[in-house]
Design a protein around this nucleic acid. Sequence first.
RNA 1: GGACCGGUAGUUCAGUUUGGUUAGAACGCCGCCCUGUCACGGCGGAGGUCGCGAGUUCGAGUCUCGUCCGGUCCGCCA
Length: 617
Amino acid sequence: MTAKVSLQKNQKMQKIPLPKKHHLRKMIRTHKCNQIGIDSVGQEVSVTGWVHRRRDHGGVIFLDIRDENGMVQVVYNPEFKEAFSLAESCRNEYVIFSKGVVRERPEGTINDNLETGKIEVVASDLLILNSSLPMPFQLDEYTSVGEDTRLKYRFLDLRRSDMQENLRLRSKVSATLRSYLDQKEFVEIETPLLTKATPEGARDYLVPSRTYPGQFFALPQSPQLFKQTLMASGFEKYFQFARCFRDEDLRADRQPEFTQLDIELSFVTAEEVISLITELITEVFKETLSVDLDDFPKISYKEAISKYGTDKPDLRNPLELIEVKELFKECEFKVFKEPANDVDSRIAALRVPNGEILTRKQIDDYTDFVGNYGAKGLAYIRVEDPSKGKDGLQSPIIKFIEDSILETLLSNLNVQKGDIIFFGAGKSNVVNDSLSALRDLIAKDLNLLKCEWAPCWVVDFPMFEKNKNGDLTPLHHPFTSPTCSVEELKKDPLSALTNAYDIVLNGTELGGGSVRIHDKDMQQTVLNLLNIEDKEAEEKFGFLISALQHGCPPHAGLAIGFDRMIMLMTGAESIRDVIAFPKTQTASCMLTDAPGKAADDQLQELHIRFHGIEKEE
RNA sequence: GGACCGGUAGUUCAGUUUGGUUAGAACGCCGCCCUGUCACGGCGGAGGUCGCGAGUUCGAGUCUCGUCCGGUCCGCCA
């Protein structure tokens, strides 16, 4: 699967005379392309860059020369014979150096779409610094290109203006964050990439050790343990742009390696972290996007689940779930009655104002859609005319529902003419997953988003939840401090809350963190509740337990998903569009062809032998 | 592990429903022409392993099975 550099059959690689050394020395550009303006008229300037486009009129040739800042039109006339004939041979993406005099464009030829459109450079010299094969795809903004072609020729894809803008914004944002944290006296400290597996739940990327046969390093899923250790070391304010690795299946917003802005502080409360990060995010949006994020409401986990069915609600969306479980306890409609009388179930209504415009086909599509999340169906009621009572409704389910229940339901939901109400009934997680996804989808389809940016904090997370096997698992991670005492935690772990907080923007979890456990007894209690024995803990992260026992200050922090943040800020549809060299959905790199095979002698040194993999020739 | 969408010229796509002559379009590319364009224009031309492999058939881009690649999602993953 080697990258095929295709040469179109009737296209030869052009031989170009390379400039002599002395010639090269004179090749100093005086201006970036976009620096040439109306005040440069009359000056001799020289520019370097790529031929963005050539317009050859026979007797006059225009080259649009592009560099990283912008573009300028250079005119070639036959008076300058050598330059003119070289310009004739230029093709798209040739790299050239050109010298000439700036003049105002003749009347009627001003291009308002171009920053430098009032002027042009009349060229006296042209030097071709490098030619180019024809592009495998056009680099203009009019052509769409498939993902595989873009990834294979990533060096060309990155030349396109939207990718340039994305990566430049990314750099600007990280510079702004660094400078902000530096002002606040944070210390940037790097932590190892070759390290040990941490109990974070995802699959690890492993690196075999040459010096310890049969043993492996793990690439970090996050620097969690190191940053806590740094707190014990007396760095009271730490940050790092940390590369993290998780070997799980990919999504549009997930890459196997990604970047977190990792932050940790000693002697602070959750409140202080929240206000610091609120300020930091506000500052970054203001500095880099000129956006004012005025309000960061705080929502409890419980409220988020109840009103939005998710712990990362998109608050741009005005729709809310309304709990109606109580109404159906005595209802004869089995689909509602069963969940109404089951503790692990819920019945929620999603009232969509003006939802009457949804067609039967769309409702069927929504039914299929919620099926993805395990919902067995999607009940709905159309409110055609609420003044007519039951006769003003249209729904496949109302015939199963008692009039008195229906009446209370409609008044509880405060229905209006033209509404459509969707219902989710069943196991709570299924109802939450399906209705929260439906809520997002309907808002998109009906264009309901009421603002551009809606950040919020989600707080008061439970300490644990039960997994399929009935075992406790941490909602955040096992180093998160509960709000209760050791005794209370032991007595009733499932109702314990934490000092954890997530920052959510437009329905995306930007980051999360918590006050950590800094007390050895509490840490052991939590680990034991998670069925991690002391001995196992000692083996896996004994250094942390030890640090906790040697004067570790109380500390708290959080990590921000940097790629996702840039994705939101740029409006990119995929995380790949904010990463220079991303991987495909199957975690391969189409540019380098990674991963690749290792040579036999390398494997031998690493003490690795394969079983059950056929050797390819 | 599972569901779905896609793979046809350098690129983006039509053609697949209903199998049938020489597989089309646009952009790009090449040649010629053109002194004011700016996604320049005109004329002409080249360019195809229809992802790959089996099968059905007189005949497969089109139907069947398998497989590979890209993408979206569920599971998984904070």
